[in-house]
Each structure stands twice: as structure tokens, then as C-alpha cells.
Simulated assay, not measured.
Amino acid sequence: MEEVQVNSTLSKKEENSTLIKKLTKKNEQYMMSLNKALVERNVPETKKEELVNEMLHNLVERQRSGETARQLYGTVTECADKIVAKPTKEQEGPSENWKIALDGGLMIGGLFSIITGLSGLFNNVEGSSLGLITTLLNFIAGGLVILWISKNMPDRKNPKKGGMFRYILVSTVGMLSLMIVMTGSMMVIPPIVNIPLNAISNIIIGALAFVAKYFAKRKLNIRGGLF
């Protein structure tokens, strides 16, 4: 019997390219379709290559006895759905700090922009009370505050991590800090630098921020934030 021997120094992607050549035409087409389905479902490249590598090793061995990928793993759609639904160690914990901050910043910054824009629109105010620099600071400070709050959320499985009182205190201090940054920047930075934005501009910025948040959360698989 032919043994599957692949240089251990090869990357998973290179190893997969070698293994797929050992498949029957039917199994090769199945794996190509599965790869496309996983890409469409936004499965991270590293995870995808590892899963495909494991399946390829199994297929090369099992196809010798006449078994097909469809018999082993079901239809391409069924297999892809199972892979996406199955949690991994990476998916069980929170995302990296920068991802949580990005998600929170887009949420807070977008919310402030929309509220300010709607307020200016309904009150017929030509320039909003928030300037361009203040708006930018809202996104940055908002992300840092949300990250800080999320890191201090009560954990029922680990009570020593922090209780509800700590969470409320951190949340209060965090939001007050955000308000100080916002009002302070408006008072300190002159309008010639902190260019006033009209109501429509604020609404557009807020809407774009929420759209960006939606796609970032989906594409980066952000976990552990507040929203």
C-alpha cells in the first residue's frame, strides 16, 4: 500500500496542495466546492487550512476502500454548516483587545454622531456642537472605554474576576471619562481646527460607522464586546 508522506516542514496550504492531487476526481471536486463554501462563510484562513488538511489525510486513506467524501462528510453544504457551527478553542474566548476596541469605538462613535445629527436636524441648527476632531476622539475614546468595561464584566464562572459593584463603578467612570473628552475637546480645540459638522454630515458618519461595525464584527468574528 502507498503511504501518504508529506514533508513536515511544508505549510498546511502547501501540504494540502500536495494531498489534493492524490484524490479521485470526485473527491477532488468535493474538496474544491467545500473550500469555496468555507470562504463564503468567512471561516478564518488558518482554521480552514487545518480542517481541510485533516479531511484530506482521511480521504486519501479511506478512498482506497472506495469511500467518497460525500459518504464520509455528507453534502458540501452540510459539511460546511457543521464546521461553522462547531466551536473551537479560539472561538470560545473573547477576541483580541484591538478587535473589541474597534467594535466598541464604531458603536459609540456612530451613536454619538447620529444623535448629534438628528438633534441638529430637528432643531434646525446649521452646525452641530461636535467638531471633526471631537467626533474622531469619540470613536477612539469610545473604543477604549468599551474595552475597559468589557474586561470588567462580572463572570459567573469566576466570581473572583470582579463583581457587579466593580462593573458599575468602571462603567460609570468610563462613560464620565468619555463625556469629559468630548466636552473638553470642544472647549479647548478652536473651531478653526475642530471644524464643525452639519447635521447631515453627522448622520452620514454615524450610519457609515454602524455599517462598518456590522461588517467588521462578521468578518473578524469579534467576540467579548458589549454589543
Rank of each mutant, 00 (worst) to 15 (best):
V173D: 04
M107P: 00
N221G: 12
F215S: 12
C79S: 14
I115Q: 01
G117P: 01
F165H: 10
M32T: 12
E14F: 08
E67K: 09
L111N: 05
I83A: 03
I146G: 05
L102W: 05
G120T: 00
F210T: 04
I114K: 03
K26F: 10
N42E: 09
A69C: 11
N194S: 10
F215P: 01
I140D: 00
L226E: 04
L178K: 04
I204Y: 07
I195D: 00
V43T: 07
M31Y: 07
T77W: 08
A199W: 08
T172N: 01
I83T: 02
N123G: 12
P44T: 03
L169I: 07
K213F: 15
D81N: 14
I203S: 01
P159T: 04
K82L: 14
L121S: 02
N194D: 12
S95D: 01
V6S: 04
L56H: 00
L19A: 05
M107F: 02
N221Q: 13
L220W: 15
R41C: 13
I83R: 02
S113H: 10
G225V: 02
G66S: 06
E90N: 15
S177D: 10
Y73A: 07
F210R: 03
G184V: 03
G93K: 12
K21G: 10
D81I: 05
M31P: 10
T88H: 10
S11Q: 11
Q91D: 13
M175W: 15
V52Q: 12
V181Q: 05
L144C: 06
Q29R: 13
M182F: 08
T18P: 04
Q63E: 15
D103H: 04
K47D: 06
M31L: 14
G131D: 06
P191E: 03
S201Q: 06
K26D: 13
I192N: 14
T18D: 14
T116M: 01
P94D: 14
E28R: 13
R70I: 11
L197T: 02
M55N: 06
I115T: 03
M32P: 01
G174A: 05
I189V: 12
W148Y: 13
T134Y: 01
G120S: 12
S129D: 10
T9H: 11
Y73W: 05
M186G: 09
A209K: 03
Y30E: 04
K21A: 14
